[in-house]
Write a protein that binds this DNA or RNA. Structure first.
Length: 941
RNA sequence: GCUCAGAUGGUGGAACUGGUAGACACGCAGGACUUAAAAUCCUGUUCCCGUAAACGGAGUGCGGGUUCGAUUCCCGCUCUGAGUACCA
């Protein structure tokens, strides 16, 4: 029979499901291998052709690893809490759980027909109470922990309370809020319970904090920075305002250094690690106190550094302590708390006007305005702690209140912003390094020797930095300090469709509910909107209280459920623990994680954070959750256009001009559905049915065909460039789709989807099928011994695929399979000994056709997935002759067959004697002959 | 602006540590089969000159360099994509 992909694929998908062929074992003498895909949010639109790209790659890898003798865990699930379902609920009143369920069913059907080897017995859904019970449980562990900097790990909050009880706040080195109290043990004991709880909250790893948030009134929610575009919500385009609000936060900053260091231990793409490094933004520098100049100082005081330990100082953060002698003024953020008290009476007007103006500017305007210099003088002065110089104190909006201390020491010779500011306001600029060139702009060099710099004159950058910091620490005017750009992560949103926070309030203080009351199930509400008073939707739930106390009304953010889900797959049905100790000790971590790079600073950072916390709690065994990570590239859409003729009045007509002729007419481009275009040729009949008003369209054609234009854009419905995998599977089958997606190009590269080449892959599979069949399409293989040429073809592909899979180069293996099948077809090979091995090698790529042939070859159904991968024997590839390319001056001219046993001098002699080479030499003696054995001969004339 | 990735035929791409550039596939052209079409099969296909062919020249974004030899290494630039942004 000809290749009947429909029957074959249906048959084997059913077989795998019924026999649970891909169920991973929790105990095994085989080594473990955990292959994970970033689980999808099940959206209403279903999968488009770009989604399965990563899943196909990971599936090939998982299947390959099984053949290589590993116990493979390859699960799938759904990140099923999220905004679209809720948005739909608001519009229609339909419970998001129902929408989500329906969407999941669509996803499952689509995933199943691609033939993935997922262990579906382990499926997880973040919105299911059995799952989010454990998300809530982990939240409780975070609430019950604080970060001990001395131990460099999280510890139980009970231990902290114990310490307070015995020793007071002394001796605690914690990551905590800025405003903590200092107290003795007796004072602590004298606090009432609420005061103690309020103090402990400042240390917890998840805590309440008043923060400025992006509040979108129309959506009734707080948005992440990346969900806000130009002051409007990315989705819906509603206005967003800054609002202060009590918010749950996660103290991810406690882990900043470990998150940074861990990057060096994992095998991730370098650009992705770089993004995380930038996000964490570690800078090593110093905090320096500049005393506020007081008229009571005498000149003697000024030169005596010891006297400058007054409490009236401005603290700045700098990464270039070495440049401190070049400081000629200070700049504070307009929001800085000292601005009011520093402003003198005569400057009051200027300062007030500047602050008012700065407030009016939106974030966007401030950014766009980056080149305009603006600021105002406070009228006050500060004293440089290293040389006693009296310098002016300014405010300017180029200094950000939220970073460092909200104040900078301006070194115009070394920092371009300071330089522009100094030029604009006529402030002094002092060069501090001998090789510095500051005629037209600042020069931030670290080379050269210091000048105009007191005790560091003549030193190098390294020596100077150390000397300055030592001096500052000695005089108490400063200290070395590491600063991070990363902020604590806000953990909550004013939404319905998310995990409820397992917290209730008593006397305005948060308390955890009891563990036995988990999961705290999402209550029913009448509407999915905020209340009239602006409270989150959960406030609508009637009688929803914890023993009469009010629950937290916000829900957890989207990243909560995805920050630990890989552990749940290890033990998906455990109702006693989030995963059993044995399961975690066996599976440990994810060996290979495949997903998009858009999660670089969200999911992948939060997951590493939670993982490190769970490690501190001894709940998991590895410091890093994802050993190796691959980013699959984005599949872009390839849109097609038709060109509508425009009349003299600029109105569109019903005539369409073929792409090659549009220069001769006035036209406007219109998107046309890519599914009615084949190789950029428009199907005219289908076009006429595409929209009613096209029914009697006229065309101006080229050679009887309508050629469409094309452009690469995002794949989206509105651009009519969405290609649905279902259609392709119906036409060519899943095996063809799988191989074609891989054939498209390197996995990591972004590329536009173009269905044009898919025929080639389909033809290949048919040709492969044909190897096992005779002219009459009857299955027919021979038991004869294979020839040398056949064995060579086979072992070439065994080796090639092994190499390619190990380096995730799936596109090149597909080509190699084509070459192998072409060769074997030319050899008319139908030897079982060859073909059976080939079936095994191809099975990770095209599993259905291979299962079918495997059984036709006489093997037991279902054993293919666990059969050993063929062993490569290099002996079959050994050649005894090689057609050496002979080049003259580096240009290849001809090939000469020579035995590979010949040594360099013999080769040289043979080449020189060759009549063909003589022709090129034209009687001249070669200057030099380079012979690389087994590769090339190059003759230099 | 900064960081990262990339640029190879009409198209997707291959060339793994410097050693025959363009594998494999699409498309296109020509041919076979067919009453015809589809399907299938065969041949050709980097560009230029040479009117089929041999042969010659150019050629991996641009300009240099190292080398017997560079798509690959080094220096400078252009363009494209992604991330990030007054981070002191």
């Amino acid at each position: 029979m000809d290749y009947q992909f429909k029957d074959i694929e249906k048959k084997w998908q059913k077989f795998w499901a019924e026999h649970q062929t891909f169920k991973a074992e929790d105990k095994s003498i085989k080594p473990k291998y955990y292959v994970l895909d970033m689980f999808p949010y099940p959206s209403g639109a279903g999968l488009h052709v770009g989604h399965p790209l990563g899943y196909i790659a990971s599936d090939i890898f998982a299947r390959y690893k099984r053949l290589k003798g590993f116990n493979v865990l390859h699960p799938m699930g759904y990140d099923s809490f999220g905004l679209p379902a809720e948005q739909y609920a608001i519009q229609t009143g339909q419970h998001p759980a129902i929408t989500t369920e329906a969407n999941i069913a669509t996803y499952r059907r689509q995933l199943d027909q691609i033939g993935f080897s997922f262990d579906w017995s382990r499926e997880v859904r973040t919105s299911s109470p059995d799952y989010y019970k454990w998300t809530q449980w982990i939240f409780m562990q975070l609430f019950n922990s604080w970060y001990n900097k001395d131990a460099d790990k999280a510890e139980s909050i009970a231990k902290l309370a114990e310490h307070f009880e015995q020793n007071g706040s002394a001796g605690i080195n914690a990551v905590c809020d800025d405003e903590i109290l200092s107290f003795t043990a007796d004072e602590w004991k004298a606090f009432d319970n609420n005061s103690q709880q309020a103090e402990l909250l400042k240390y917890r790893l998840t805590y309440l904090r008043e923060s400025t948030v992006n509040w979108c009134a129309a959506l009734g929610t707080v948005l992440a920075n990346d969900e806000v575009k130009d002051g409007f919500s990315e989705r819906g385009g509603y206005p967003v305002e800054q609002k202060k609000m009590m918010q749950w936060s996660m103290r991810i900053t406690a882990y900043a250094d470990r998150l940074l260091k861990g990057l060096d231990t994992i095998d991730w793409p370098e650009p992705l690690k770089e993004m995380q490094r930038n996000w964490i933004g570690k800078s090593v520098g110093a905090l320096v106190k500049f005393t506020i100049y007081d008229l009571r100082f005498t000149n003697d005081d000024l030169t005596n550094l010891q006297s400058l330990t007054s409490n009236h100082y401005i603290e700045v953060f700098t990464t270039r302590a070495d440049t401190i002698f070049g400081t000629t003024f200070l700049v504070l953020a307009p929001e800085h708390e000292l601005v009011a008290s520093l402003t003198t009476a005569e400057q009051q007007g200027d300062i007030d006007a500047y602050i008012a103006q700065a407030k009016k500017k939106s974030e966007l305007e401030r950014m766009a305005d980056a080149k305009t210099v603006s600021g105002a003088f406070t009228g006050s002065y500060a004293v440089n702690p290293v040389n006693g110089e009296k310098i002016q104190i300014w405010i300017a909006d180029y200094v950000l209140a939220g970073y460092g201390t909200g104040a900078v020491m301006a070194v115009p010779s070394g920092d371009q912003r300071d330089y522009l500011f100094a030029k604009h306001y006529n402030l002094p600029i002092i060069p501090i390094i001998d090789i510095q060139n500051i005629e037209t702009e600042a020069d931030p060099t670290k080379d050269g020797r210091y000048i105009n710099s007191g005790f560091i004159n003549g030193l190098t950058y390294k020596e100077a930095t150390a000397a300055v910091i030592a001096k500052l620490e000695e005089t108490g005017a400063g200290k070395a300090k590491v600063n991070f750009r990363m902020r604590d992560a806000i953990f909550g949103r004013q939404r319905y469709w998310g995990e409820p926070v397992p917290v209730y309030f008593k006397d305005d203080l948060p308390h955890l509910i009891e563990e036995k009351d988990l999961p705290l199930v999402l209550p029913e509400v009448d509407k999915y909107l905020p209340t009239e008073s602006g409270e989150p939707p959960l406030a609508r739930a009637a009688g929803w209280t914890y023993n009469g106390q009010e629950y937290e009304l916000s829900t957890m953010p989207g990243w909560a459920g995805s920050s630990w889900y890989w552990y749940r797959y290890m033990d998906a049905h455990n109702d006693k623990e989030f995963a059993s100790k044995q399961a975690i000790e066996y599976w440990k971590d994810v060996d290979l994680y495949i997903g998009g790079s858009e999660h670089a600073t969200g999911h992948l950072l939060y997951s590493r954070f939670w993982n490190k916390f769970l490690k501190d709690m001894n709940l998991v065994v590895e410091e890093e959750p994802f050993k190796k990570l691959i980013n699959q590239g984005m599949i872009q859409g390839r849109s097609n256009f038709v060109y509508r003729l425009v009349d003299e009045l600029g109105r569109g007509t019903n005539t369409f001009i073929s792409y090659g002729l549009i220069k001769q007419y006035r036209t406007s481009p219109i998107h046309v559905d890519v599914n009615i275009v084949d190789n950029d040729i428009l199907n005219l009949d289908k076009f006429k049915k595409f929209r009613p008003d096209y029914a009697d369209a006229d065309f101006i054609l080229e050679n009887g065909k309508y050629h469409c234009g094309h452009e690469v854009e995002k794949m989206s419905k509105s651009k009519f460039n969405v290609v649905n995998p279902d259609d392709l599977i119906a036409r060519y089958g899943a095996d063809t789709l799988r191989m074609y997606e891989m054939f498209l190009g390197p996995l990591e590269q972004s590329k536009p989807w173009n269905t044009n080449g898919i025929e080639g892959v389909f033809k290949f599979l048919r040709k492969f099928w044909r190897l096992f069949h005779n002219e009459a399409w009857e299955f027919s293989v021979s038991d004869d011994a294979p020839t040398k040429a056949e064995l060579k073809s086979l072992h070439k592909i065994i080796h090639k695929v092994e190499e390619d899979v190990e380096r995730f180069s799936f596109n090149t293996s597909v080509s190699s399979f084509m070459i192998a099948v072409n060769e074997l077809t030319d050899l008319k090979c139908n030897k079982k000994a060859i073909l059976q091995e080939l079936v095994i090698i191809l099975s990770p790529y095209a599993p259905h056709i291979c299962e079918e042939l495997w059984v036709l070859l006489g093997n037991e159904a279902g054993t293919l997935s666990y059969t050993p991968y063929p062993k490569f024997n290099p002996a079959y590839l050994v050649e005894d002759e090689f057609a050496y390319p002979i080049s003259i001056n580096g240009k290849t001219k001809l090939n000469l067959n020579m035995s590979l046993s010949l040594e360099a001098d013999a080769i040289e002699a043979f080449v020189k004697d060759s009549a063909d080479v003589q022709k090129y030499l034209d009687g001249k003696t070669p200057k030099k002959v380079i012979v690389v054995k087994g590769r090339i001969v190059n003759i230099v004339i």
